[in-house]
Write a protein that binds this DNA or RNA. Structure first.
Lengths: 226, 226
DNA sequence: ACCATTAAGTTAATGGTGTTAACATCGATT
DNA sequence: AATCGATGTTAACACCATTAACTTAATGGT
């Protein structure tokens, strides 16, 4: 229904099916959740045969992976744009965090697909381009946090980055539980709460540094990773 | 495979199918992810016919919902047990948070099912008992955080609870991205990172209070505050 | 002791799904 | 102009959730 009917109204070749699939799939998952996306319905909605999508994506999984990769690129771009006009590192962090939360709010299902689906963790043929774009995203995030940290050693920065990311990430996800959230909010407005979270995010690099120093007895008492 | 073969080795009635289904399903989802759980395979693995499970669960969804509800009860019990011997509110929070993270580590797929699947948010016939047990869980969580807060008004407590929960929740989920995490960790051990996160969790109630006061300059600057 | 009821299994069928093989069409290259 | 590869189609296959209709066995009232 995109721009297909424009041409001859019955062209044998769609002309732009790959993009049309991604775009239609994206609309569809926001409507009904990514778990219930049906390849057949998708094809039908574009007026194309059941098997046509498989000329462009080997799998349903790979279509979803492409969607997720597109989401990562988009999120990175949005964050970059938001941070562009920030004067100092603190403002950069703040704007970046806002962009992250805004993305999760605008496209919750895409966000879930990117971060909590089994695409990145399960199944043998993991889409390598998806993995690389996800890594790239995290790299940029660490750079932003680094600007915020007083101590720039790798340990501190990585700890701070993952802590702040955890906070934003968890908040974004909890906010999606439509029925749960009103119960949790009480008299609090969503905006106020977001401010609270963001203020903690800005403060935390210091706490993290203190935390790491406080708790460690021996230089590196243990090397194991649970 | 439970205690079925004990009796007569070919009893027409299984005797304990409901529990057996839940138990087998739980094992299975931790092995292959909850999205790919198959009712047929499940039935087959218990030596029972394809339709048998539907005598105990109306749906695949409702089986998963029962699994999730069981998870909530278990998590709540584990947290309660962990917090039982804590002398003060700070220790309570710490122990509760550790129990939460430990649960997510021990049963990652069940955790995903409980918190980021579409069970609680999507679809018309939402399992009401699941919703209520989830609410109950959150209520207990708020009580723990309340003990940690200097200011006990509802606004502050709810903000603190959701902030701390966000942090733990996000960390638990990020830690599941098997391939992502080594990349994020760098020279940091997982245990050290957990300590950092936990220390922020303990500190944050104060930050949150400050955050809320600082940032608000709207019309009704304070509504229920002496 | 009988029998009706019912919970808990069974088999068989329905309809939907991802996916693939074999064939068809068309735009582009030679 | 003939060909060839990319893109689309049709017709299958295998899997899966779910349901209808039937069977078995245990239970409880008389």
């Amino acid at each position: 229904m995109r721009r297909k009917t424009k041409r001859v109204a019955r062209a044998y070749h769609h002309g732009d099916l790959r993009d049309a699939l991604l775009s239609a799939a994206r609309d569809e998952i926001e409507r009904s959740g990514y778990e219930s996306l049906s390849m057949r319905d998708l094809a039908a909605s574009l007026g194309v045969s059941e098997a046509a999508p498989y000329r462009h994506f080997t799998d349903r999984r790979s279509l979803l992976a492409a969607l997720a990769a597109q989401g990562f690129r988009e999120l990175e771009a949005a964050a970059r744009r938001a941070m562009a006009k920030a004067p100092d590192p603190v403002a950069r962090m703040d704007q970046g965090a806002r962009a992250y939360l805004a993305f999760a709010t605008r496209s919750p299902e895409l966000f879930r697909l990117m971060f909590v689906s089994d695409l990145l963790t399960r199944a043998a043929p993991r889409d390598s381009s998806l993995v690389s774009v996800a890594h790239q995203f995290h790299h940029q995030f660490e750079a932003v946090v680094s600007g915020l940290c007083s101590r720039k050693d790798e340990r501190s920065v990585k700890a701070a980055a993952l802590t702040i990311w955890s906070l934003l990430h968890g908040f974004a996800l909890l906010r999606m539980g439509h029925r749960l959230i009103p119960f949790m909010l009480g008299p609090l407005s969503g905006a106020d709460l977001a401010e609270a979270v963001l203020s903690v995010a800005s403060d935390s690099p210091n706490s993290i540094g203190r935390g790491l120093d406080h708790r460690r007895r021996g230089p590196r008492a243990r090397k194991k990773q649970p």
